[in-house]
């Protein structure tokens, strides 16, 4: 554990909690892509199956359970509890355009051709592009509420901090995972355009 990973994890947690609270407090999921949230629930489910097979630390287990629980709670709020406020017409990105190629890539490029390893690889690749339905929705409606931009900022910041974590771990621990690093770079690059808007416009974005 180093400072970049810890702040990365906390940034990720902040993003998830901000989104949940926003939906809960406003009783609305307007402007939020349910499809991105389904993809994130799928990401956590496929990555954290190792909860059943190995124990790493109390911190690790606790965070995994919180991430999975929050992901499914968010999907529940969007598609069940506050379904009437869900803007399905503007959430038109096709999930299969991400899931199918990513699934294929995970089968082709992985560390080990085993069930759990392929699901882990799938989750890493899928996470890198899971935000695309949300970014697509914002580009379609041409605007994002302030709180939604805070959510995206912390979600993007998390993977950027992980990049620093991997540099740290390479130098001090000899840790090196090409799959995670390349996917993490792709993921961070996808947020760059948004980061620019967030910093220059500060609050709610309107294109």
């Amino acid at each position: 554990m180093n400072i970049f990973r810890l702040t990365g994890d906390l940034s990720h947690l902040a993003a998830i909690i901000i989104l949940l609270l926003k939906i809960w407090k406003t009783r609305s999921c307007a402007g939020i892509s349910g499809k991105s949230q389904i993809l994130f629930a799928l990401v956590f489910t496929t990555r954290y199956l190792d909860l059943l097979t190995s124990f790493i630390s109390l911190y690790n287990t606790t965070m995994k359970v919180i991430y999975i629980g929050c992901a499914y709670a968010t999907v529940y709020l969007i598609y069940m509890k506050f379904k009437a406020t869900y803007d399905g017409n503007h959430d038109s990105f096709r999930m299969e355009f991400l899931v199918v190629p990513v699934g294929g890539l995970a089968c082709l490029v992985n560390h080990d051709f085993s069930f759990l390893e392929i699901l882990w690889t799938f989750s890493i690749y899928l996470e890198s592009v899971a935000i695309l339905p949300q970014l697509f929705m914002i580009s379609k409606t041409g605007e994002a509420e302030t709180i939604t931009t805070h959510y995206l900022f912390f979600l993007g910041l998390y993977r950027a901090l992980y990049l620093f974590n991997w540099i740290w771990r390479f130098y001090f621990e000899g840790f090196f995972d090409m799959i995670a690093i390349v996917a993490g770079m792709v993921q961070t690059i996808l947020y760059c355009d948004f980061f620019y808007l967030y910093v220059t416009k500060g609050q709610g974005i309107s294109l």
């Binding site: 990973r5 994890d9 990720h12 190792d50 190995s54 790493i56 630390s57 690790n60 965070m63 995994k64 991430y67 560390h111 882990w120 992980y162 974590n165 621990e173 000899g174 840790f175 090196f176 995972d177 799959i179 995670a180």
Partner: peptide, 10 residues
């Protein structure tokens, strides 16, 4: 030695 792909991250 390089320690490749430990699954201790989130």
């Amino acid at each position: 030695s390089l320690n490749i792909n430990p699954k201790d991250e989130l």
